[in-house]
């Protein structure tokens, strides 16, 4: 493997890791809001969260560019604070996080809806304030859902292509993730063989993530059952 290919693999892992990590707290919050709270605009929030799932990725990427680009409304303001997304690896993180967000929220929301509200009420009668109830009862009980959602989000972030390439382009060493590296190689005559190596790595990473999440979920279920 060439250093360039390694860079692409490592960048993808880094992007996927931070995209998952940063979106987790927001994902839990939004899942709580959608599953538990009744407020005006709940359906609108639900739609917004799911939008990246149904929009063409290139549209999402373009919207990100309009908003968070150097001349974008939010991007201009963030640039003054020294936070730059456009054509930067952090932009790839943002694009991946937005694209993976619906999957994360869905998994957490499903596990939240499976939690018996009676258990939370019982914790309340035992003196736990709502925040403590969440920390000591709800959170441990939705942990398998959080892990499943996080793994799904990680895999999606690893594979994100359309929004990423639109938002932060395809700069080797800076914004060239695994999928964009494969795409670039396929544009060059004789690049198929090198592309194939990256394809195998992509499959290996995705499979490992999936197996790991299965294993962790089972370990948690076993702990609760025994």
């Amino acid at each position: 493997m060439t250093p360039e290919e390694w860079q692409a693999v490592l960048l993808s892992l880094r992007v996927a890791f931070f995209a998952t990590l940063v979106s987790l707290p927001f994902g839990i919050l939004v899942a709580m809001a959608l599953a538990r709270w009744r407020f005006p605009g709940r359906q609108i929030l639900n739609g917004l969260v799911h939008l990246p799932l149904i929009l063409p990725p290139v549209v999402t990427g373009y919207l990100l560019l309009l908003t968070f680009g150097r001349r974008g409304t939010v991007g201009q303001w963030l640039a003054e604070l020294g936070i730059i997304f456009a054509f930067n690896w952090t932009g790839a993180v943002l694009a991946a996080a937005v694209m993976a967000f619906p999957l994360l929220v869905r998994a957490i929301r499903l596990s939240l809806e499976a939690v018996d509200p009676g258990l939370e009420a019982a914790a309340g009668t035992l003196g736990a304030s709502p925040i403590w109830v969440f920390a000591t009862v709800t959170l441990p009980m939705i942990l398998p859902g959080i892990i499943a959602g996080a793994v799904l989000a990680f895999a999606k972030a690893m594979g994100e292509f359309g929004a990423t390439i639109t938002f932060v382009a395809n700069i080797p060493g800076q914004t060239q993730t695994l999928p964009s590296a494969i795409y670039a190689l396929l544009q060059v005559p004789g690049g198929e063989e090198r592309a194939m190596r990256l394809v195998v790595i992509a499959i290996a990473v995705a499979m490992s993530a999936l197996l790991l999440s299965e294993w962790v979920s089972r370990a948690i279920a076993r702990r609760i059952a025994s």
């Binding site: 009676g118 019982a122 009668t125 035992l126 003196g127 304030s129 403590w132 109830v133 441990p140 009980m141």
Partner: peptide
Amino acid sequence: VPPHKRRIGYVFQDGRLFPH
């Protein structure tokens, strides 16, 4: 007064022990 500030013990029909 919300439940967690009442100090009233409640035993439910279905126990409601924390499974974890």
